[in-house]
C-alpha cells in the first residue's frame, strides 16, 4: 500500500479536474501543488542537508524573472522560462552558495535571508532589465481555463517528488544527512562537505526556480515585492515544511495543503484577515513546541493524543 501511495495520489490528482471544479477550487489546488514543489525543494537543503535557508524567495524570484524577462525582452513564450530557469537558477545558486555556504548554522540562515533581500532590491533597481517595481505583465495568458496550468504544475510536482526521492535514497542522500548530523565528522569521513552542500543548494534552488517560472506563466504578473518577498515566499516556504514535517517525503505535501487552505481561510475572516501573518507566527510557535517534527514526523504523537482523549 505504502509503495503505491504516490501513484494513487498522482492518479487521483490527475482525474480531479474532470469532475468540474470551480475556478476558485482549481486555483487553490494549483497553489497547493506549487507550494508542495517549493516545500520539497527547501526540504532537500534545509531538512536533509541541514542548511536552513531563509532566502528561498531568491530562487523563486530568479526563476520567475527568467520567464518574465525572456518574454518581455525577446517576445518568446514565457513557458520557455521553465527549462531556461534551470540554467539561470543553477548559476545563481552557485554564486549564492559560494558566499553563504562557508557560514554555518544560524549564520547561514542570516546569510540567505540577506541574499533574498539583496535580490529583491536589485530587481527593484535594475529598471532597464526588470521594469523595477512596475513589474512584468504577460499581455495575455496562454489559457483562460485553469486545467492546463493544473496539469503542468502537477507534472513539475511529480518530477520533483521522484527526483528528490531518488536523490535521498542515493549516495547523495546519505552524504546530505551526514553533513546535517555533524559536518566535522562528515568531513573527516571523506565527504567533501563544501561540494555536497553546494550540490544540495543548487538542486534545491533549481526546483524552487521551476515553481517560480511556472508562477510567472500562471499569474501573468510579477514584481519584486511579490516574487522576492521575505514574508510571503521565504518564510511561508519554511512554514510549509515545518508544519508538514522536516526531512520527510510527505511533509511538504501535507504542509502545503494546510498552509494554503489556512491562508485562504484566515484571509476571508473579516477584520482579522489582515492579521494572517500574526496567525502564522502563532501557529509556527505552537508547531515548534508541540510537534517539532511536523505533522508527518510526529504523526504517532498526534494519533496517541487523540486515542488518549477518547479513552479518558
Amino acid at each position: 500500500m505504502k509503495k503505491w501511495l504516490p501513484y494513487i495520489i498522482t492518479g487521483l490528482l490527475a482525474l480531479l479536474p474532470l469532475i468540474g471544479l470551480s475556478t476558485y477550487m482549481m486555483h487553490i489546488l494549483i497553489l497547493v501543488i506549487m507550494w508542495t514543489v517549493i516545500g520539497m525543494a527547501w526540504n532537500l537543503l534545509g531538512g536533509y542537508c541541514g542548511q536552513v535557508s531563509f532566502g528561498h524567495a531568491a530562487f523563486f524570484g530568479i526563476g520567475a524573472y527568467t520567464a518574465g524577462i525572456l518574454y518581455f525582452k525577446t517576445g518568446l513564450s514565457a513557458w520557455w522560462g521553465i527549462p531556461l530557469s534551470i540554467f539561470f537558477v543553477s548559476v545563481a545558486s552557485l554564486l549564492i552558495g559560494y558566499v553563504t555556504l562557508r557560514l554555518r548554522g544560524p549564520f547561514f540562515a542570516l546569510g540567505t535571508l540577506a541574499i533574498g533581500e539583496v535580490c529583491r532590491v536589485t530587481a527593484e533597481n535594475l529598471r532597464d532589465f526588470t521594469q523595477g517595481t512596475l513589474g512584468i505583465m504577460l499581455k495575455e495568458r496562454t489559457w483562460i481555463d485553469k486545467t492546463w496550468y493544473y496539469y503542468i504544475i502537477l507534472g513539475i510536482a511529480v518530477f520533483t517528488f521522484i527526483s528528490i526521492r531518488k536523490i535521498i535514497n542515493s549516495k547523495l542522500g546519505y552524504y546530505f544527512v551526514a553533513i546535517r548530523e555533524d559536518q566535522d565528522a562528515a568531513e573527516s569521513l571523506g565527504i567533501n562537505t563544501t561540494l555536497y552542500k553546494t550540490i544540495a543548494l543548487i538542486l534545491s534552488g533549481v526546483f524552487t526556480g521551476l515553481a517560480g517560472a511556472f508562477y510567472m506563466n500562471y499569474m501573468g504578473y510579477i514584481d519584486p515585492e511579490i516574487v522576492f518577498a521575505l514574508h510571503d515566499i521565504s518564510i511561508i516556504t519554511i512554514m510549509v515544511v515545518m508544519v508538514g514535517g522536516v526531512a520527510t517525503f510527505w511533509g511538504p505535501v501535507v504542509g502545503a495543503v494546510i498552509m494554503v487552505l489556512l491562508a485562504e481561510m484566515i484571509r476571508s475572516i473579516p477584520r482579522l484577515g489582515v492579521a494572517h501573518q500574526t496567525m502564522f507566527g502563532i501557529l509556527l510557535i505552537l508547531i515548534i513546541i508541540f510537534l517539532p517534527n511536523g505533522i508527518v514526523g510526529d504523526f504517532s504523537k498526534i494519533r496517541k493524543f487523540f486515542r488518549f482523549g477518547r479513552a479518558g
Binding site: V177, A178, E181, D182, D184, A185, A186
Partner: peptide, 9 residues
C-alpha cells in the same frame, strides 16, 4: 574523543 555519531541516522 567526544563521539560524533550521526545521531538521527
Amino acid at each position: 574523543q567526544v563521539v560524533k555519531p550521526l545521531q538521527r541516522m
